[in-house]
Design a protein around this nucleic acid. Structure first.
Lengths: 193, 193
DNA sequence: TCGACTACCTGTAGAGCGGTAGGTTTCGTT
DNA sequence: AACGAAACCTACCGCTCTACAGGTAGTCGA
């Protein structure tokens, strides 16, 4: 129980925090951020609300950790990405409704005044649009229909992804999200190479 | 002797209710539905929270009234509409951020479990997609690119409108919403007639 | 003029919220 | 074995929320 032990305190603490963030993702998906109580998150990991506050001193601190976690495994697209990879990403998302629901709920809340996630989303969307424009340029060059530029197309691409998610979350049977996204890609025409 | 000369009680009551619904729209835009307190709405029309409950017995009843109000002046598109009219609608929306914010916030919240507006949005989106398909068929017939049908295009059209709204609400300067929407329409090619 | 009704009000119940204070146990280090 | 820190806990504060109960003043038709 001393040197041979696999986990030291630091690691165990990190794991606990990750557990809590995971629980927070779930609760936010179910009730939104405003509707998510610290007690509900704590209960899901077998803690009291005050025990949770030992790891994250305020509710906002927990939200920050949630948003950072998102950035970890859902990085902003890279220009080396191709459109086909984007389509796969949408397909992948369609298999993970809980996560999509978390961030769709957060995005919806974030447009209200003084929402703690507003700055995060504003910045992130600017980055994502820029990255998407780069991806589009890499894929189509300037061969987009009707003289559209990658920079003008990027907001549409992002909008389609988000908008489809809401329709799909409301009624998964009503929209084939991955197929609909591919339909949109077809509207952009044939890749340049 | 106060208002009695011009208006009868029925009319006055209706006007008060409309006032309250208007205030509710504002407060929901600012704080979302869950974050909107009856007291905040009441204060905005010079009532106490309990006075407000005289007109709407529960918070949910007020939400229902808000959603009905929306249906009144934001009707589901009619097949006689043309795409140009849709573009004008987006332009019009761009001049009324508060309303857009109200319903974008509500849409975002509604994907969470047991949200009182969830049924409303689920139904409405089904209707809107069907109407949009009819509008698309009237405009393009079967001349949509890549063998797309109006039914498959409708979800994309709706997604673009919603998705652009979120980007625009987060940072109005970052996206020219009406122009972006017209860009999308251009992707659909030339109308049939 | 009277009784019913509308349109509010005050008071309060009852629950939940985030957060603080301060304790106690557990545990690794020395 | 002793110490200090980490990892929790109980207790509680102050606030906010929806909703109910019950009262009162004005209005209005019979």
């Amino acid at each position: 129980m001393t040197y041979g032990d696999v986990m030291n305190a630091r690691v165990r603490s990190e794991e606990r925090r990750a557990e809590i963030v995971g629980a927070a993702l779930q609760v936010i998906a179910e009730r939104g951020y405003r509707g998510a109580s610290l007690a509900a998150v704590a209960e899901r990991v077998g803690l009291t609300q005050q025990g949770l506050l030992h790891y994250f001193p305020t509710k906002d601190a927990l939200l920050v950790a949630v948003l950072q976690e998102r950035d970890r495994w859902d990085a902003v697209p890279d220009p080396r990405w191709r459109m086909e990879l984007l389509a796969s990403l949408v397909e992948y998302n369609a298999m993970r409704p809980a996560i999509i629901q978390t961030f769709s709920a957060l995005l919806g809340e974030s447009v209200t005044e003084d929402h703690p996630a507003r700055g995060y989303f504003t910045e992130r969307y600017a980055e994502v649009r820029a990255s998407m424009a780069a991806v589009l340029r890499a894929e189509y060059g300037d061969r987009l229909p009707n003289g559209l530029t990658p920079e003008r197309t990027a907001p549409l691409l992002v909008a389609v992804m988000d908008g489809l998610q809401y329709q799909w979350l409301l009624d998964p049977g009503s929209v084939d999200m991955p197929e609909a996204f591919r339909d949109f890609l077809r509207l952009l025409g044939e890749p340049a190479d």
